[in-house]
Computed example of a mutant assay.
Amino acid sequence: MASLSVCMIVKNEEQWLPKSLESIKNLADEIIIVDTGSTDKTKEIAKTYNAKIFDFKWDDDYADARNFSISKATSDWILWLDADETVSKKDHNYFKQIMKEEKFPIVVLEQRHYTNDKKNPQFKPVDDRYKKEAMGFEGYYPTLITRMFKNNMGLKFEGKVHETIDKSMQKLGLKFLRTDIPIHHYQNFKSDTMTKEKKEKYEKLLKEKENYDPSDLKNLHDLAVTHLQKNDLKKSFSYFRKIYDLDEGLLEPYLGMGIIWAKRGDYKRAIKFFLTAISKDTKKSIELTSPVETIRETILFNLAMCFLRTGEKPKAMQIFKDMIRLGSRFTPQIQDKLKELGISSN
Rank of each mutant, 00 (worst) to 15 (best):
A2F: 15
A2I: 11
L4P: 12
S5Q: 08
C7G: 03
M8N: 04
I9M: 12
I9C: 14
V10Q: 00
K11G: 09
K11R: 15
E14P: 02
Q15C: 03
L17M: 03
P18D: 08
P18F: 01
K19L: 14
S20N: 12
L21I: 10
L21T: 05
L21D: 12
E22R: 12
E22Q: 14
S23W: 06
I24G: 02
D29R: 06
D29Y: 04
D29E: 05
E30I: 01
I31S: 02
I31H: 06
I31F: 10
I32D: 00
I33W: 03
D35H: 03
D35R: 08
T36L: 13
T36S: 04
T36Q: 15
S38C: 07
S38P: 05
S38N: 12
T39W: 02
T39P: 01
T39L: 08
T39A: 11
T42K: 07
T42P: 05
T42F: 02
K43F: 02
K43P: 04
K43M: 06
A46Y: 10
K47V: 05
K47H: 09
T48R: 12
Y49D: 04
A51Q: 09
A51T: 08
K52P: 07
K52W: 00
F54T: 06
F54E: 06
F54V: 14
F56G: 01
K57H: 11
W58P: 11
W58G: 04
D59L: 08
D59K: 13
D59N: 14
D59I: 08
D59T: 15
Y62C: 09
D64Y: 13
A65P: 10
R66N: 08
N67G: 01
N67A: 04
S69M: 09
S69W: 15
I70V: 00
K72P: 04
A73R: 13
T74R: 14
S75Y: 13
W77A: 03
W77T: 02
I78R: 01
L79K: 06
W80P: 00
W80R: 13
L81K: 10
L81S: 05
D82M: 09
D82V: 12
A83L: 01
A83S: 15
A83Y: 08
